[in-house]
Design a protein around this nucleic acid. Sequence first.
RNA 1: GGGCCAUUAGCUCAACUGGCAGAGCAGCUGACUCUUAAUCAGAAGGUUGUAGGUUCGAUUCCUACAUGGCCCA
Length: 476
Amino acid sequence: MRLEKLNELKAAGIDPFGVRFERTAGAALIKNNYSEYEGKTVKIAGRIMSKRLHGKAGFANMQDMSGNIQLYFRQDDVGKEKYELFKKMDIGDILGVEGEVFTTKKGEISIHVRDFTYLAKSLNPLPEKWHGLKDVELRYRQRYVDLIVNPEVKEVFIKRSQIIKEIRRYLDERGFLEVETPMMHPIAGGAAARPFITYHNALDMQLYLRIAPELYLKRLIVGGLEKVYEINRNFRNEGISTKHNPEFTMLELYQAYADYTDMMALTEDLVSTVMYKVNGTMIAEFEGEKIDFTPPWTRMTMLEAIEKYAGVDFNKIKTDEEARKAAADLKIKVEPNATRGEIINEVFEAFVEEKLIQPTFIYGHPVEISPLAKRNKDNPEFTDRFEVFIMAREIANAFSELNDPIDQKERFLKQMEKRAGGDAEAHMMDEDYINALEYGMPPTGGLGIGIDRLVMLMTGSPSIRDVILFPTLRPR
RNA sequence: GGGCCAUUAGCUCAACUGGCAGAGCAGCUGACUCUUAAUCAGAAGGUUGUAGGUUCGAUUCCUACAUGGCCCA
């Protein structure tokens, strides 16, 4: 049907797919500065979203990126030919119009159209005008349609962009250098996760898509780039859920001569500053909860948190055997050879995480689950590491970086044992990283923040797919 | 990987206990020179996700598969 209209347009000598159109205003600009624009002739362009015909006059609404404005067409003004063209026009068509700004009798700021040109004919009908597009699958698969008809979706992605911009501004102002490190790694390191595998033909070698940029960024610290950060994609070959997408965006930053306490202060200040700049408030509404980002955030060691929420004091549990018994008492399944540190982590995940609604620092992670973190001076079974939880979600992970190459090598060897034992998430040996540490890495604080999850919280989006423009889906 | 739910017109949704698949919007034809969910009149639009099965008869019941959602691991 619309193809016929397209051919009619062509037959009438009108190009349905026009060219460059110079705009002198936008919908929101005109509405927000009406007194300036009243009576003035403007040129605006956008998509026709609705149409109301009244014989020889009619109204339409045009949407551009800034908003929506009403257009008024009269046969007396545009001429019979153009008016017929207006009548034939479909919802979804993209036009450029020229006319004067005025207010209708009903008080709506509008454009009195004098002339218009076709910029793009729409061949597919748009979804229904007041229910929009609801089908989540279609919304993700055809995000372009979602963005056209659901304005709140556009708002989320504009806010996402602002959040990332403010993070960059914050770090740039504090002397951090933004860098880009490889996405394709010969060894997948820096996190506990299964990687995607790809293949380079010319080099005849297998490569991994990175699961984290960590080890490369710390090589840069060795190289003397004392404050670096990277905001980019990580890839993890794992399940998909409302909290997980196979590719997701991470901020990682490293600061030489700092430690995890500096990272705590930085995290709290960075996140709350960005929150306030973007939302104008420290309070976020999320799934019926009010989250208060105002610093200082609660600080608890992992053992304190376990004692509080699981009622078990792991300070009194000294051996792996006692820990396994404690796990059994709590009805948590663990590997028969699980160590105390691993069990502490299991108990934490089972009993504590879900309770952490307000921004909370959990620090002092067992060394077994932290192969890249520096040991605590007083208690070498634990590391100088923290994670931030908000709404039961892990938002940030940070530590004093392990800069002792000998300890690091031992940790890698331990991880390799686990790997040999079937743990596909255990860390791989990275000889070159050890080599880098052997040149000397200053004591360093490192921090990672999951950008998608942060955006979820700051925009009130319950699913990670609501903050990723094109989430991973099975092809149709 | 397991459980539950969903899939009907381009979109949003109906269809009782198994009995002719329906509405609104969009689109089409016509009327209307200040409407805004415009209004009014008319006509049209479907392999009910796919493949089987039960039945005189299946959108409805059963099985498998596909895609998605939610929960769990």
